[in-house]
Design a protein around this nucleic acid. Sequence first.
DNA 1: AATAATCGGGCAATCGATTGCATAATAAAA
DNA 2: TTTTATTATGCAATCGATTGCCCGATTATT
Lengths: 345, 345
Amino acid sequence: MKRQKRTTIYDIAQKLNIAASSVSRALSNSSKVNAATRALVLKTAAEMNYQQNAMASNLRKGNNPTIGVVVPRINQNFFSNIIAGLEEVTYKKGYNLIICQSNELHAREVDCVNALINQHVSCIIISIAAETGSHQHLQQVLDRHIRLIQFDRVVNELDTFKVINDNERASFEAVMHLVAQGYQRIALLEGPQDIDIFRQRKEGYLTALRKSGFPILEELMCENAWTKELGAKATAELLNLPEPPDAIFASTSDFSALGVLEVATDKGIAVPESLGICGYSNEPFTEITSPSITTIDQYSISMGKTIANLYFQEMEAFDFGVEPKIVSIKPRLIVRKSTTRLLNS
Amino acid sequence: MKRQKRTTIYDIAQKLNIAASSVSRALSNSSKVNAATRALVLKTAAEMNYQQNAMASNLRKGNNPTIGVVVPRINQNFFSNIIAGLEEVTYKKGYNLIICQSNELHAREVDCVNALINQHVSCIIISIAAETGSHQHLQQVLDRHIRLIQFDRVVNELDTFKVINDNERASFEAVMHLVAQGYQRIALLEGPQDIDIFRQRKEGYLTALRKSGFPILEELMCENAWTKELGAKATAELLNLPEPPDAIFASTSDFSALGVLEVATDKGIAVPESLGICGYSNEPFTEITSPSITTIDQYSISMGKTIANLYFQEMEAFDFGVEPKIVSIKPRLIVRKSTTRLLNS
DNA sequence: AATAATCGGGCAATCGATTGCATAATAAAA
DNA sequence: TTTTATTATGCAATCGATTGCCCGATTATT
């Protein structure tokens, strides 16, 4: 069983005894071809099972209607929703999506970006890995005049389009909500502070405390409590303090909040009565735990759509040198049982 | 700011006053080029910021190291895990992944497949949409000698590589487990029976009942209880029967099982004492509900890896006409609290 | 010293589609 | 009927990299 060649426009041209250029024009609906000829070509193409070779076409046209996406992990709720949202829009525009995951590794991220540059994609959409490194690879993208959109975890120094959540604001509101619920000693589980979003979330926390006239206590802020396990560990330590907190804001993730909840449940601490818990991300499970967990929804699917639309509306048709726009999406606080101990809210 | 041309091998050739072919050979590590020349080319290429144009290279070489993936929904735990697993392997091989989602729509699936054919991908990996239609688009893939791997939801009639879960076996074991726990009237929430996997799960259920000497009762089998809402609705009806079931196997999904659990909780029915609940898929949340839900893990990430490895080991290098292999993965029953009422298990 | 083998490198065709330019055929205008 | 527009089509270059083939120069073999 030998691999037989696919039919090309030359095959069609030969069969119809016309020039390949006419076939090309007929297939691309050019006005420079007679209606009858076009019909004939279309019919023959269908009969011969013709399918365009996108590689040849794109090479000649010098553009590749493909968008590359680099995310830390594909199978993480937030990112898979982003991708789903992107796909929804790009599909309609006839664009393809090439997906890569950095696995939070800088070296791998660089690899992925280079592969996408090779592919001559029209745009690269990226949320950077936790492992930090230089931004040289992203600068390369800009140098090559490939459009670049950063989202969520962004490198601020780079002058690119950005779509971000207003983490500070969301975080601020979450803490203000805790305050309104009468919590007095509010602890913070932080993410790596070299990543922007985590710094912003901390900032929101601090602002809310200041605004509420609460002291800022170092012992209530735990670094690097990212995962469920680390969240649990930090919680155990917090609850062992002479003056333990009466609320914990797991600003890193809902997984971390889940760790908090499990430790509290184990220790027989009543949630929300004796301990308020707030997470971040609105993972599906937060609705299901008992009590359900207050959290922050990032509108991930719609954020994906926003990113894609940004490309099509602001970048695709325009030349370079357009002033990069920064779109900030305000996340929404979802109040659930884990922080509701007053009725008036 | 004009878009300047990217550097090509011709630019390098010109600068070094050698032929483009030599540059190409140097870059591809061909033995037909002097070590000194190669070093010079490599150095110059780096200086000039050269990046290969994959479109041109692939066109010439007549192959595109890219794999297309079509799934019903990207942001569904099972599928995003599959994709993550695929990516893990393909990345190491230097392959790209183009991802499309059919949104469970047949027409859209056809569209996606055609786009992938245009791209001349090396392989298409697909799990078909719920909305049924002809398989003509998949036949087209085979006709064009593009490798095709179906997974999870497969069209049996097509003679292709397949990677599936042994749904019948898993379902059988789940029901046998319920029997062992002393449940007597076991209900089934079914998925659309025109999809293979759901038919197989029902088959496993029936076999287990027969083997256990239980009657098969039509009133305990609910069609199309796919989502949480439908699962809840079916449960409400089941529990209103003169002789309600004492266990419900939500063979469609964990979401459906969640619906069951919520209804049971609302009605004050004790789980697992008065009602056993078993789901399917091992969604992360099943571990977190109270009680935690017994379910079936499909090893989705490793399944993704398996699929990719299948391509690289059995298909990439080989000519067509290789006998398609069917890989069946045995899912694992995860027993949790929602079905554990005896200690001896 | 003469011949063969090896090496390094250049030329030009090729992958398949697109497109500017030229030209033939037809229609419209004078 | 002659001239001018218009339309349809063909020719050939092009996108950027790869590769078969050829050839000159160097090295190895007798």
